[in-house]
Design a protein around this nucleic acid. Structure first.
Length: 477
RNA sequence: GGUCCCGUCGUCCAGGGGUCUAGGACGCCGGCCUUUCAAGCCGGAAACGCCGGUUCGAAUCCGGUCGGGACUGCCA
């Protein structure tokens, strides 16, 4: 039997990194097994679901490179792959289960149910312990109320989780849960398992938060006359403080990382490493290598902390691994954004002169923009800290004067020539290299942190460099 | 409270009875390189939650304990 796995996001928010990782594992498994990866939209929560979120989620999937073989937007043999289009199907299934005796209408009020739960809790039992088919009135056929699945109390629900091994639930700890609301709409449990059955899903890899729901889904599947899929419950993602990953830890939406200048390959790699590794030694690997080595059974059982620092390091690795042209292309929008206007073709030549040096120093795409602005925009104001640290020292004026003098008579304006005359300064003045090059750097780039000085001057050009040196000299007074 | 899941460096991932004085990666600390910042290189600190048991031998198996987490809704 060929493997069929699915990802079923709810379009009630942006794609969360945790969901993205679950999608990634499903995708890897499908690709490794040569199976089918399906994307379906779980929008039974019609209040909170929006088209915008759906679009955002799908575009994030595509950005990450998680293409799907079947499902929403790409089609397939199972309709639109959108739950809101299948409401009749769910309703029909629910009624059929009532007819077969597996489910029943429940007209009890919220208060009644609450008191049943309270009683169970007081007695130290599972809260759902007393949520059962009432043995009197409610057995009558009815159109009223919600529909609950009647959980058979005769034996435990046992299953083999691919990641956790055997997991078992006593039936008394599984309440008769609602499958169809009194307004006729399906709950997640119903819609999701009906879809899994109808779409012939063979493996369900999902967050561990759904582990307690699994006996419900198994029971439902069986009462539909089907065999449940193989489950694999993925460990959850946390922040570095061990708490649930939330806004407090920074960005949680995948699209935020895209906007911050992360590369999809790096995010892919990092997400994959959270809970899995090909061999315990390798941390950087390609999609192909991941597909080759991936197995759900080798996914860790422990929750993983999402560590932004490691992601950033990894992104730097990927940026440095790009070829020059690729780097320049990816970084162009960020440079223009930093400069505040679009750049002409000839202006890019100056950037390309420095591109290699900038690339080495870039972990996040926008950082490249910050390093390159000095090439295109005059210095509005010098970086305050840099000025205070280097320009207020004694002897800075002399350095600038000498720099101006030596550079103005330079016949050839290239990095090597610039270096050779500038190197004379510390010798003649008998001061350290840092003392001479740092002031020049601040004068020319506006900051004590920049790409290497001689190359920067060369790329900037003679006129602007001289102008900036003179201006800094004047600012010194 | 109840049910279920989990417990190796600060973090991620290895190790699943002897080769573990526990390995790799990020981060951290120190050094080298150096005009700054990175990168790179070298070195360092850093973990088997605890208690019992099984065994010649346990990070590895079993039990308990403690701790963390998820769920506990006519949300998903």
């Amino acid at each position: 039997m060929t493997v069929r796995v699915r990802m079923a996001p709810s379009p009630t928010g942006n794609l969360h990194v945790g969901t993205a990782r679950a999608a990634l594992f499903n995708w890897l498994y499908a690709r490794h097994e040569g199976g089918t990866y399906i994307v379906r939209i779980d929008d039974t929560d019609q209040e909170r679901s929006t088209k915008e979120f759906e679009d955002e989620i799908l575009s994030s999937f595509r950005w990450l490179g998680l293409d799907w073989d079947e499902g929403v937007e790409v089609g397939g043999p199972h309709g639109t792959y959108r739950q809101s289009d299948r409401l009749d199907r769910y309703r029909q299934v629910a009624e059929q289960l009532v007819a077969s005796g597996a489910a029943y209408h429940d007209v009890r009020s919220t208060e009644e149910l609450e008191s049943l739960r309270a009683r169970a809790q007081q007695e130290g039992k599972h809260p759902g312990h007393y949520i059962r088919r009432p043995d009197s009135v409610a057995n009558e056929p009815s159109d009223e109320g919600a529909i609950r699945l009647s959980v058979p109390q005769d034996r435990p629900v046992v299953f083999q989780d691919l990641i956790r091994g055997e997991v078992s639930f006593e039936p008394r700890d599984v309440d008769d849960f609602v499958i169809l609301r009194s307004n006729g709409t399906p709950t997640y449990h119903l819609a999701s398992t009906v879809d899994d059955v109808d779409y012939a899903i063979t493996h369900v890899a999902r967050g561990e938060d759904l582990l307690p729901s699994t006996p419900k889904h198994i029971l439902l599947t069986r009462s539909l006359g089907a065999t449940e899929p193989t489950y694999a419950h993925l460990p959850l993602l946390f922040g570095t403080d061990g708490k649930k990953l939330s806004k407090r830890h920074g960005a949680t939406a995948l699209s935020d990382y895209r906007a911050m200048g992360y590369l999809p390959e790096a995010v892919f790699n990092y997400l994959a490493i959270l809970g899995w590794s090909p061999d315990g030694e390798t941390t950087i690997f390609t999609r192909e290598e991941a597909i080759q080595a991936f197995d759900l059974e080798e996914v860790s059982r422990n929750p993983a902390a999402f560590d932004p620092a490691k992601l950033e390091w990894m992104n730097g690795e990927y940026i440095r691994a790009m070829d020059r042209g690729q780097f320049v292309d990816s970084v162009k929008p960020f440079v223009e954004e930093a400069v505040g206007r679009s750049l002409e073709e000839n202006e890019w030549e100056r950037f390309e002169e420095l591109a290699g040096l900038i690339q080495e120093r870039t972990k996040l795409l926008p950082e490249a923009g910050r390093q390159a602005v000095f090439l295109y925009a005059d210095i509005d104001e010098y970086d305050e800290e840099s000025w205070a640290k280097v320009m207020t020292k004694s002897g800075v004026g002399d350095v600038l004067d000498m720099g101006i003098a030596k550079l103005s008579s330079l016949p050839l304006w290239d990095a090597a020539s610039i270096e050779s005359v500038l190197r004379e300064i510390p010798e003649e003045l008998d001061i350290g290299a840092g003392k001479t090059f740092q002031p020049l750097r601040v004068a020319v780039t506006g900051s004590s942190v920049s790409p290497p000085l001689f190359e920067s001057m060369a790329a900037l050009g003679r006129e602007p460099t001289m102008a900036r040196l003179k201006r800094a000299r004047e600012e010194l007074g």
